[in-house]
């Protein structure tokens, strides 16, 4: 299962001018070790191709955010996930790993478990919207893979996330 990831000149520019951001944004999830090395090489034109992972990532939205210490899905998160479910229904050749993450304000073990709760919330919601469970897996990174590294709520809010990372293949 090779991750399909996207590098875009446009995204890189956005990164360069943003105050507290970083290279973690390049990958779809930014969490997998070596994510950049596995970049699928899809050009940024593919953002306009509705069946492309780049489109999924940027137009559908590959991530949902959570409140402090919570794993419940906000109406906004549910709306994003509705879009993900629809996209996955139209693109059956992809499966996905849902990555759960936490901000740094918590102990390491607890945050791993909290990230798992978040990933599971997303997985269950997608299944309830018709995505086959066999196409979805979950993993938690706890606080190990923040995308923003400042120590204020501005960054924490973006780090409390679950990211749906596509991979080629129909799952197990």
């Amino acid at each position: 299962m090779k991750n399909i990831l996207v590098k875009s000149g446009l995204i890189a520019l956005a990164v360069a001018v943003s105050a507290c951001t970083d290279a973690g944004r390049f990958g779809a999830g930014g969490a997998n070790d070596g994510a950049g090395a596995n970049a699928g090489g899809a050009g940024y034109d593919s953002v306009n191709d509705p069946s492309s992972p780049a489109y999924f990532q940027q137009n559908v939205g590959d991530r949902v955010l959570f409140s402090v210490d919570q794993s419940t899905l906000s109406p906004q998160a549910q709306s994003t996930l509705d879009g993900q479910a629809t996209w996955l229904a139209s693109n059956p050749s992809y499966s996905a790993i849902v990555e759960g993450h936490a901000d740094e304000q918590g102990t390491r073990e607890y945050n791993l478990a909290l990230g798992a709760r978040r990933a599971n919330s997303v997985q269950e919601y997608l299944i309830s919207k018709g995505v086959a469970g066999s196409r979805l897996r979950t993993v938690s990174y706890g606080k190990e893979r923040p995308i923003e590294v400042c120590s204020t709520e501005v960054c924490y809010a973006k780090n409390r996330r679950a990211v749906t990372v596509l991979s080629a293949g129909q799952g197990s």
Partner: peptide, 25 residues
Amino acid sequence: TMAFAPRFAPDGNTVVFSLEKGGNT
């Protein structure tokens, strides 16, 4: 599943740890 937070028992053979299944740990 995810497995984490392991620690040895004093006997040196038994291990206790957290196992996550379906979002519950």
